[in-house]
Write a protein that binds this DNA or RNA. Structure first.
Length: 267
DNA sequence: AACAAGACCTGCATGC
DNA sequence: TGCATGCAGGTCTTGT
């Protein structure tokens, strides 16, 4: 489930249990996540205190007062539950349990086990993965000019470019579809067509930047659930929600993933 | 270097 | 009912 808004909401959920608290006991019930947890994973956390709980793109960044950093990614199916200690009953897919000095227990559940937990010594900028992440779409550094530089010369589609975490960090399949619909841009359009030959943003790129911010901000604030949560995602065959459009949402496959869009109003 | 396709793993909805 | 198929919101690796 997790794209940037869901990860940010997870961060806020975990903060009360983890921030300024110590890992009293860590239980690894299954170590074979996307990458196997090292055998000393629990021992390296126990006794450590959380200085701050941050987020970068879809990664949760747990800074410890020791200087080490616990980096976590939810993959496709990861989630956390917070409850009062002690937890006696576990689900099959409860893989990692943090008993914190706050008196709260944090349980990581992940049926598909695409999630990641890694303990890093230092500096995220030098990390082979985190160091290559592109702009945070809700940060002030993100804008039409920086996005223009990133899209310049890209022959790939807008859908693929916006899904690329090195270009914009935090969008996934849903919010790429939603942002493109809001910006009235076709997911099949070539990414470089939003940039002039000299590398300046075309007007449509300003619209896209606003649309990206809007869909993420809205997802963070509303958090309504149910069928009408998205305007195009998973709505194949339904009417386009844009006033006066009258188009029908289509599903196509791009780079092996579903794309939903309105062929009438998205050009 | 840029890009597309395949792989990883489990659960669920669908159709026969 | 059982079984097969296809699909799922991510990203790493492989191949052109």
């Amino acid at each position: 489930m997790p794209e940037l808004p869901e990860v940010e909401l997870t961060r806020r959920q975990l903060r009360g249990a983890m921030e300024a608290a110590r890992f009293e006991n860590v239980l690894v019930r299954r170590a074979d996540l996307r990458y196997p947890l090292p055998r000393d994973f629990a021992a390296r956390l126990e006794g450590r205190t959380v200085r701050a709980l941050k987020r970068r793109a879809k990664y949760l960044i747990v800074e410890l007062t020791s200087g080490e950093i616990l980096v976590m990614h939810l993959g496709m199916s990861g989630s956390f539950a917070v409850s009062k200690a002690p937890v006696g009953q576990f689900d099959n897919h409860d893989h990692v349990v943090f008993n914190m000095s706050s008196g709260l227990t944090v349980v990581y559940n992940d049926p598909r086990r695409f999630g990641v937990m890694r303990l890093l010594d230092g500096d995220l900028a030098r990390d082979p993965v985190l160091g290559k992440l592109g702009a945070e779409p809700l940060a002030s550094t993100f804008g039409a000019h920086s996005l223009a530089m990133a899209l310049r010369g890209r022959k790939t589609t807008l859908k693929a470019a916006l899904s690329d975490q090195r270009i914009v960090a935090g969008l996934g399949n849903i919010y790429v579809c939603e942002a493109l619909h809001r910006a009235r841009l076709s997911p099949r359009r070539r990414a470089s067509t939003l940039v002039t030959r000299t590398g300046a943003p075309r007007p449509a790129l300003y619209v896209l930047v606003k649309a990206i911010r809007a869909v993420l901000t809205e997802a963070l604030s509303k958090k309504r659930s149910g069928a009408d949560r998205f305007r195009v995602y998973d709505r194949e065959g339904r009417r386009c929600p844009r006033r006066g459009c009258g188009g029908t949402i289509r599903r196509i496959v791009q780079n092996g993933r579903s794309t939903f869009y309105c062929p009438v109003c998205q050009r």
